[in-house]
C-alpha cells in the first residue's frame, strides 16, 4: 500500500516506456555511487550518494568518470 503525496501529476510520475533502470549502484570507499554500465566491467559515474561532503570533492568520484564495476555491488 503506497500513498504518494506530491504536487506532480500522476501521469508524469508513473509514465514509463521502459521500466528497467539503466543504472546500477556500487559501494566504494564508504560512498555509494550510481553508475551507468558502459563497456564490459566498466561504468560511468552518474551520481554520488553519500552524506560525507568530502566524497563530493574526490576527483575520482566526479560524475562522468569511468569506474571499474568489479567493486562490491549492492
Amino acid at each position: 500500500m503506497s500513498v504518494l503525496y506530491t504536487p506532480l501529476p500522476l501521469e508524469l510520475v508513473m509514465f514509463t516506456e521502459d521500466s528497467t533502470s539503466p543504472y546500477q549502484d556500487i559501494a566504494i570507499d564508504g560512498a555509494t555511487l550510481t553508475v551507468q554500465p558502459t563497456a564490459t566491467g566498466m561504468g560511468k559515474i552518474v551520481r554520488i550518494n553519500s552524506t560525507n561532503p568530502d566524497h563530493y570533492l574526490k576527483p575520482e568520484f566526479q560524475p562522468g568518470q569511468q569506474i571499474s564495476l568489479s567493486k562490491l555491488q549492492i
Binding site: I28, P59, E60, F61, Q62, Q65, Q66, I67, S68
Partner: peptide, 11 residues
C-alpha cells in the same frame, strides 16, 4: 585499471 578508479588527467 588497478585501483578501480581512473584518475583525471588534471590530477
Amino acid at each position: 585499471q588497478t585501483q578501480g578508479v581512473r584518475k583525471t588527467d588534471s590530477t
